[in-house]
């Protein structure tokens, strides 16, 4: 299945790209996708995770076509 992965703010700088589409096997979790896109880097402890624009955590299971985003703590307002 294909997952669209997006990076924002300092996470975009760290990863050197805005987004990519990765093909993973059925049942893959957020953590599995992170392992694929991060080249073995540990996920920073403060990382926030969203799937289809709702917050979730690294154990969340994904489905084909999901949009997964990794980003640092938010600083709006």
């Amino acid at each position: 299945m294909n997952i669209k992965v997006r990076f924002f703010a300092s996470m975009r700088d760290r990863m050197g790209r805005d987004e990519e589409v990765v093909a993973v096997s059925d049942g893959a979790t957020v953590a599995d996708v992170w392992a694929r896109v991060s080249n073995g880097q540990a996920m920073p402890a403060s990382t926030l995770i969203a799937v289809n624009m709702e917050y979730t955590d690294a154990s969340a299971a994904l489905k084909d076509g999901d949009e997964l985003a990794f980003f640092p703590p938010v600083t709006g307002g």
Partner: peptide
């Protein structure tokens, strides 16, 4: 909003 809306300064 400050805790959850995805904005970054």
């Amino acid at each position: 909003l400050k805790e959850r809306a995805p904005f970054w300064k």
